[in-house]
Design a binder for these strands. Structure first.
Lengths: 356, 356
DNA sequence: GCAACTATGGCAACCGGTTGCCAAAGGTTG
DNA sequence: CAACCTTTGGCAACCGGTTGCCATAGTTGC
């Protein structure tokens, strides 16, 4: 009714009202007020309503810090990414934030700056401040990760480390599809622009590419390791040209976009002279020029899955509800790939893969 | 020396060691251990070193929650954005995260989903969990914002609300430059794709555009309000065509990219038939097709400035160290603007602006 | 040689909630 | 009507630190 009442916090001291202020005003004990909020069935309905009304009137809000102290649970999750600059992580953050919000959790975000030092420091600093961690593309060693896992619940993304639950975007299948796509377009020599040395997905991708290359009699050349950035792609484009390939598959879209940019600046036509395949399908991949053929990765889903996995770990009821989550990629063909300028279009039918 | 020692936490109970465990092991009181960390000069050097060594050996880490309770300071800042999906906020988050990290603060991120309800809930939920807020493009009413400001330190971005410190990216000057640029290319009828109704910058931009239009004798048409998304841009492109303009200025780059995409799909040449000017220069604006002429906004700087302003608010020593921060935009000319297909190229010299 | 001062460490209250345990009140059953 | 059960609320300890105040011991000054 009185608008001033529910907007301005009423407290004796002028500071935010506490459970004790409410209790005093209601003539009950603080514990009863506490229970009125967190354990309604332990309090008489009438008493409870009186307490809630008074609390509302006084503008009382439970202090999350005080609440977290006895329980040790903050309803907060830590998300650590190596580089916020990378739009890949934008999608991941988005998915994680949504899943966290849906479960009533808050997300704490930290950029580890591609440094395992910084990452470790961040984990230590946050350790009792959050209920668990999602480490995306962690730069920590396997040993360090296991160690951290002993201390707090933790899920890794894009890593496979023995006992830790992880979310993996497996581009092996997608990479094979991309390689077959290139082979069918007559490409015979393909460059692979490799990502960071420690990357699990980089290894998967390179192996998948090679397996198709062997079967199809293509030759491959690996360029890298490269930082997963546009600038590195710009620089690597020249290396591609020197290698005299007709197609390039890149570790991620940022590299591919860099390559596109540089080739364009040099007047080298894409896909007329060189075909380019990216990976991830980040924001921008569909409207760059030419629109990028890429492996579409369910990044947002991965962020969501990581948080769900972590929440499962926290929930003592359904312990170990699931270990790893493996998400597939699929090939999205746009305009950056075309028939090879040298080879003739191969119309070899795709052979069924051995199911090993 | 013994590697197991500094990695495995040693505690009597099996839980993480506390200040009391360290104190017991050292034969001192808990308060002394506390002081050894937070008030070194109050403890004898020898005692202190003994305590630190023992703490290290036991793998003791201060509990940030327990630390925050008496002081009320969590060394954590809340950053609320209406839509993480928007790359504009990616840059803002990046800047904010960096500034926070540099000051030893942690960032809590929340997406308010373009809803003032959600935003208010998030503020309330986080209120005692963070030391202050950065509200980016807040959807809250002025009254609510002032109310929140009474409760906790708070900085707004892209809003101007009487007593609250804010960071503003003022595109008025940039918009005038863009309008002059279009005028000099012979455009006489310009569409403006408006952003959300409540947007402060949207109003600034529209007014700046109109002021140049009046001076230059151009006609303008306002389309919107529009959601600041690619999809809205796609839809708005058709409206632009119907309006029979030769140039369009958009509220942000997402809209511009949507417009570009749709015009391309319809076979309408940019800039041959229609020129497009975006705003913000987000990731992707330079490699879309054609590369977008846009107002480059120092978004990351804005994020950084917002956090710095907030930290200044928290720091009782240098209270009110600065109120608003206004950051300018500048016109970045790329390939989405060109001479008007109808008008002849105007070579009217730019008149000096009245300095009012 | 004694008063005054300083350096150092301990005690205990406190931050704002949560929760185990107990007591009082009221209701039920035989 | 007594024995017992259930409901409800209070007391007090606790979560893990921080900090004001005090006690002790050692140092300095006169």
């Amino acid at each position: 009714m009185v608008s001033a009442r529910d907007s301005v916090p009423v407290s004796p001291s002028g500071r935010a009202p506490t459970i004790h202020d409410v209790a005093a005003r209601c003539g009950v004990a603080a514990s009863t007020v506490s229970r009125a909020f967190s354990r309604p069935e332990r309090v008489n309905l009438a008493t409870r309503q009186r307490i809630l009304a008074t609390a509302e009137e006084m503008g009382y809000r439970p202090n999350p810090i005080a609440r977290a102290l006895p329980s040790g649970r903050t309803r907060t999750l830590g998300l650590l990414v190596p580089d916020i600059t990378n739009p890949f992580f934008l999608d991941l953050i988005r998915g994680a934030e949504r899943a966290a919000a849906a479960a009533g959790y808050t997300l704490v975000l930290a950029d580890t700056d591609e440094s395992s030092e910084t990452e470790l420091t961040a984990v230590r600093r946050l350790t009792r401040a959050v209920d668990g961690f999602v480490l995306a593309s962690s730069r920590l060693s396997d040993a360090r990760l296991r160690e951290a896992y002993a201390t707090s619940p933790l899920v890794v993304v894009n890593r496979r480390v023995a006992p830790l639950p992880g979310v993996l975007i497996d581009s092996a299948h997608g990479t094979r599809a991309a390689a077959e796509h290139l082979a069918s377009l007559g490409h015979e020599r393909i460059a692979y622009l490799a990502g960071p040395r420690a990357s699990w997905s980089d290894q998967r991708r390179w192996r998948a590419l090679q397996s198709v290359a062997r079967r199809r009699g293509l030759s491959t050349v690996r360029i890298g390791p490269l930082a997963p950035t546009v600038d590195a792609g710009v620089a690597a484009a020249d290396a591609i040209v020197l290698e005299d390939v007709t197609a390039a598959v890149t570790f991620n879209d940022l590299l591919a976009i860099g390559v596109l940019r540089r080739l364009r600046a040099r007047g080298i036509g894409v896909p007329d002279q060189i075909s380019v395949v990216g990976c991830d399908d980040i924001f921008g991949a569909d409207f760059c020029h030419p629109p990028l053929t890429t492996l579409t990765a369910p990044i947002e889903t991965a962020g969501r899955a990581a948080v769900d996995l972590l929440l499962g770990l926290l929930d003592t009821d359904r312990q170990g509800s699931g270990r790893d989550v493996v998400l597939p990629t699929r090939l999205t063909i746009r305009d950056s790939t075309g028939t090879s300028p040298t080879g003739t279009r191969r119309l070899v039918p795709l052979t069924a893969e051995p199911s090993s």
